Computed example of a mutant assay.
Amino acid sequence: MYIDEVEKAVTSLIQELHHYDITCEIEGHNLYSSKPKVHLLTHLPNDLQIFGTALHYETEKGEQFNKHIHEHLMHTNRLNTSRDICFKFAKQSAMRHIIDGGSWVSKDKMREKYGNSTAEFLKENFNDNVKNTLFGGSRDFADNNNTDDITAKALCDNTFVVFMLKESRDQHAHPFIGKVSSLRVEHYRVESSLHAQVNNYLLMQRVSNDASTPLDQLKIVCKLDMHTEFNNKLVINLSKFGSYWFFVSLFSN
Rank of each mutant, 00 (worst) to 15 (best):
L183W: 05
K166V: 11
H187K: 15
N129M: 13
R206Q: 14
V161M: 02
R189T: 02
F160T: 05
N146K: 09
N125M: 14
K179D: 04
N132H: 03
V190T: 03
A152M: 14
N145W: 06
S106E: 06
D143H: 12
S208T: 15
S192H: 08
K107Y: 06
F176V: 03
N116M: 14
A196P: 00
K166L: 13
N129Q: 11
S182F: 06
E112W: 07
E191D: 09
S106R: 13
V130L: 05
S117T: 12
F126D: 02
R206S: 08
D143Y: 09
S168N: 06
M164V: 13
M204W: 02
D149W: 10
F176P: 01
V180S: 03
L183S: 08
S168L: 07
F163Y: 04
N209R: 10
N200P: 01
S138K: 10
L183A: 07
V180A: 04
R206W: 06
T147N: 11
N199P: 00
R111M: 15
Y201V: 02
V162D: 02
S117R: 09
E120A: 12
M110A: 12
M164D: 07
N132S: 10
R139Y: 05
K109S: 12
D140V: 11
N199H: 13
V130A: 00
G115A: 15
K153V: 14
K107Q: 12
C156T: 10
L155W: 08
A196D: 10
M110H: 05
L134K: 03
H195W: 06
N146D: 07
E112L: 15
A196V: 10
E167K: 14
T159F: 07
L202H: 04
F121W: 10
S138A: 13
G136D: 04
D140L: 15
T118H: 02
T133D: 09
N199K: 15
F160M: 09
S192G: 05
V105S: 09
S117A: 11
F121M: 13
R111C: 12
E191L: 15
S168I: 04
G178D: 04
R184V: 07
N144V: 07
R139T: 15
Y201K: 01
S182H: 11
